[in-house]
């Protein structure tokens, strides 16, 4: 499955639009990460635990989105966008959405 965050895919032609597909996930950080983060706040630097959390959430949201696209019979998702929102302190939502399309190799147009 081809996934891009551009509206068109160079070298391919969109032959059918299947519709909007989306995936979301709400994840909380576990207490150990919070404690580690408090220490990091003294000396500064990357919070690896939180970066991992974002990576995992993003993977999960994209997977759910791709699952929907597959069900619709699409072979690509274009113009993918991500948004996040803080649900409460300690949990964040990651939402991925895009347009499921059927692509065929060939010039645009």
């Amino acid at each position: 499955m081809i996934v891009t965050n551009t509206e068109t895919v160079a070298g391919y032609r969109i032959v059918e639009i299947k519709g909007l597909v989306q995936g979301n996930t709400v994840r909380a950080k576990h207490a150990g990460r919070d404690i580690a983060a408090s220490f990091k706040n003294l000396v500064g630097g990357e919070l690896k635990g939180y970066t991992e959390l974002l990576t995992e959430s993003r993977r999960q949201a994209v997977e759910r989105m791709l699952g929907q696209a597959e069900q619709l019979g699409a072979n690509a998702v274009v113009n993918v966008r991500f948004t996040t929102s803080a649900v409460t302190a300690g949990a964040a939502e990651l939402y991925a959405y895009g347009t499921a399309v059927v692509l065929q190799p060939g010039r645009d147009g």
Partner: peptide, 15 residues
């Protein structure tokens, strides 16, 4: 074929 790539980073400040 093109591919979407993602990257994330979380940086904390110091005291």
């Amino acid at each position: 074929p093109p591919r979407m790539l993602v990257g994330e980073a979380v940086i904390a400040t110091d005291y």
